[in-house]
């Protein structure tokens, strides 16, 4: 296409030229592609391969061991991720819906703040904030006079709070973008017929922007399932999230087979969502 020379060619030829794949252009993509193949695809494929190899040879032994040792953690991980996801959904729909109707620059700025805080720092900050004698309890003690408050860190509550805190701004930002691209006239028509704002959000804004809402949910769910730093810093000692199991399996037991089996299981948990995301993104880009 870039080689097109409009004066020298008729329109027909141009179309033909556009349709013909430019194999020379592959050379330009090649360095980036080679890096990705060597540093991402090769480890990805070999992690799947290593999950199948154990002392007994090729087979599912690592998976059997992974399930018998870690089935509680698998259920726990999925449950925590789903609970966080529900809360992320409710929070982000409320904020994005509110901001769709009311221009409020301060709130618009405030909710975005966690976007810029890396996961690791979220983990540390929540550790400081939610511990039994943490910053939050100190403040609440001062206001209410109650001395010994339970800490929320080092348990499922701390994990859920940390994940929701980190993930809701992304979901809100994406959803608000989609909500704002829906024209006022459609919403006003519904409101003229007696539709409330809440109802307008639930039955007009959400259904129309459902692809964006899905993308927001996929991105936040995948990074919750795969995050290591937050559960290391604010999780309980037991049960733990799967990334912690993977990490311990390697660092303490030097057991790559089971670690990779857990890795493949985490791929399988998100595979349908990842497929949706990848097809959606390439469709959006118009390629």
């Amino acid at each position: 296409m870039a080689g097109a020379h409009p004066q020298a060619q008729t329109e027909d030829q141009l179309v033909v030229r556009q349709d013909r794949p430019n194999y020379a252009a592959l050379l330009l993509v090649l360095p980036a592609l080679a890096l990705l193949a060597v540093l991402y695809l090769y480890p990805l494929v070999s992690s799947i391969w290593m999950s199948l190899v154990s002392g007994e040879g090729l087979g599912l032994a690592n998976y059997r061991k992974a399930f018998s040792l870690y089935w509680v953690d698998m259920v726990y991980t999925v449950a925590i991720a789903i609970l966080s996801q529900v809360l992320v959904f409710v929070t982000s729909v409320s904020i994005a819906g509110y901001l769709r109707f009311e221009k409020w620059p301060l709130l618009n700025l405030l909710y975005r703040l966690p976007l810029f805080i890396p996961f690791l720092i979220v983990g540390h900050s929540m550790r400081v904030f939610l511990a039994p004698h943490g910053v939050m309890n100190m403040m609440i003690s001062r206001v209410t006079g109650i001395r010994e408050l339970p800490g929320l860190a080092f348990g499922w509550e701390g994990l859920v709070i940390s994940y929701v805190w980190k993930q809701f701004p992304l979901a809100t930002l994406l959803m608000l973008g989609a909500f704002e691209s829906i024209s006022d006239s459609m919403i006003e028509a519904a409101q003229n017929l007696g539709c409330s704002r809440t109802r307008a959000i639930l039955s007009i804004l959400l259904p129309i922007s459902s692809p964006t809402v899905m993308v927001a949910m996929v991105l936040t769910f995948v990074s919750t399932i795969g995050c290591l730093s937050i559960p290391l810093l604010v999780g309980a000692a037991k049960p733990v999230m799967l990334p912690v199991d993977m990490s311990f399996r390697v660092t303490y037991f030097n057991d790559w087979g089971v670690a990779n089996a857990l890795g493949v299981i985490s791929y399988l948990i998100v595979v349908a969502l990842a497929y949706y995301y990848l097809t959606h993104m390439t469709r959006e880009e118009g390629v």
Binding site: L44, M246, A259, Y267, V270
Partner: peptide, 8 residues
């Protein structure tokens, strides 16, 4: 970005 990065 679509899959957990830790196993890789």
């Amino acid at each position: 970005q679509a899959f957990p990065q830790l196993p890789v």
